[in-house]
Amino acid sequence: MGKRHWSRREVLGASAGVAAGMAFAEPAKAAAAPSAVTPELIEAAKKEGKVSYYAAIQLEVAENLGKMFEAKYPGISVRVERSGAERIFQRIAQEQGSGIHAVDVANSTDVSHYLEWKKNGWLASYLPEEVAKNFPADQVDGEGMYATACAWLEVIGYNTNLVKPEDAPKSYADLLDPKWQGKIVKGHPSYSGAILTTTFVLSREFGWSYLEKLAKQKVMQVQSAGDPPIKIMLGERAVMADGNDYNLVLFKDQGKPVEVVYPAEGSPLIIVPSGVFKEAPNPNAARLFQSFFFSTEAQQMLVDKFAHRSFHAEVKPRAGQKPMSEVKMLKSDPVQVQAQSEEIKARYAKLFRV
């Protein structure tokens, strides 16, 4: 018998309100106490010997994080299960619904997933000491269920061999120019949480009429937020309508013919929380891994090696990367993303037929 495909509607429900533009504005029922990494925690984690990490960040990033953790804590292996955020959400719903407890720690590019997991009682309250000390309150759940592990911006980009700087699009409106017909690539909200959030933001800011016009540009449709940068780097398309900025920054560092465009109207901010599950099969290793994820060394690696953004107060910005303070950011409302997700994906699929 094949696995049942759970729709998001089956596993979603109403959640408490979150103020628009804030990451985690839900009032805390009880403030979480910060937890330090103790010798006892390390010893207990080593006895478990493994941690199961479900990752929506790109595989190379997740694996690097895992290898750093394994090097710091020999004897504990990290099993990375990487997929798109929407696929991870479905998988965890299937597992939890079947009484299967396989996930220790999960991160997602869709904040609304944490609202649902928290409402369902699936997350454990665990606030790493480093988070309490160095992260802004609006990036931390008040009850310690999750916090923002990293972030990036969704942007426009182009291949510099195919497009001259003076001809490149500077805004979302520019993408509707007939000259870009058949030359654009973009991600899909049914696979990627980052693209789902981006689609929500664009439809909110410009209306669905904008996306209807964009769909008529004969857009190449790919899955994740990491796919459009690859397509323009390879020259398979000249311009990307969405996709993460960090891939383009890394490609530029490698001498690839790509350029980042932070749209005039603003760039959707994608935050990537991480949380420990209450029924984690390796609860101590899960907590140790969560603490490591938010440590200065892990956060600095995400910035330096992968051009991600960090909210850690002691992490130094990446040289040559445009700081978030200089970018007009378009922030989402997780509750609204959650409420509209099925409608967004269905409406989008009708417009952008593969």
Rank of each mutant, 00 (worst) to 15 (best):
G2L: 10
K3I: 11
H5P: 09
W6L: 15
R8N: 11
E10R: 06
L12F: 15
A14E: 13
A14C: 05
S15W: 09
A16D: 10
V18R: 03
F24W: 09
K29R: 14
K29Q: 12
E43H: 10
A44K: 13
A45M: 03
K46P: 11
E48T: 04
G49N: 08
E63P: 00
L65C: 11
G66I: 01
Y73T: 11
P74N: 13
G75C: 12
S77H: 13
R82D: 08
Q90V: 05
I92N: 03
E95N: 12
G97V: 07
I100F: 13
H101Q: 12
A102I: 02
A106R: 06
A106H: 11
A106P: 08
S108M: 13
D110P: 09
E116C: 00
W117A: 04
K119N: 12
K119R: 15
G121A: 01
G121W: 00
L127H: 05
E129Y: 01
E129C: 01
A132G: 15
D138M: 00
V140P: 10
M145S: 02
A151E: 15
A151S: 15
W152F: 15
L153Q: 03
E154H: 02
I156L: 15
Y158V: 04
Y158T: 04
Y158G: 04
T160W: 11
N161E: 12
V163Y: 03
E166R: 12
E166C: 07
D167F: 07
S171C: 06
L176G: 01
K179W: 07
Q181V: 01
Q181S: 02
K183P: 06
I184R: 00
G187A: 04
H188S: 12
S190Q: 11
Y191D: 06
A194I: 04
A194Q: 09
A194L: 06
I195T: 15
T198H: 07
F200D: 15
E205S: 10
Q221I: 10
Q221A: 04
Q223H: 15
D227M: 10
I232Q: 06
A241Y: 09
G243S: 05
D245P: 08
Q254R: 10
P257A: 01
V260R: 01
P263R: 07
G266S: 09
S267D: 05
P268I: 03
I270D: 04
I271V: 15
I271E: 14
V272Q: 07
G275V: 10
E279P: 06
A285C: 09
F289R: 04
S295M: 12
A298P: 13
A298D: 08
A298L: 11
L302K: 14
K305Y: 04
R309M: 09
S310L: 10
F311S: 11
F311G: 06
A313L: 07
P317K: 05
R318F: 03
R318N: 11
A319T: 04
M324D: 10
E326Y: 10
P334W: 06
A339Q: 14
E342F: 05
E343L: 09
I344V: 03
K345F: 12
Y348A: 02
A349R: 09
K350V: 06
F352A: 09
F352N: 08
R353Y: 08
V354N: 12
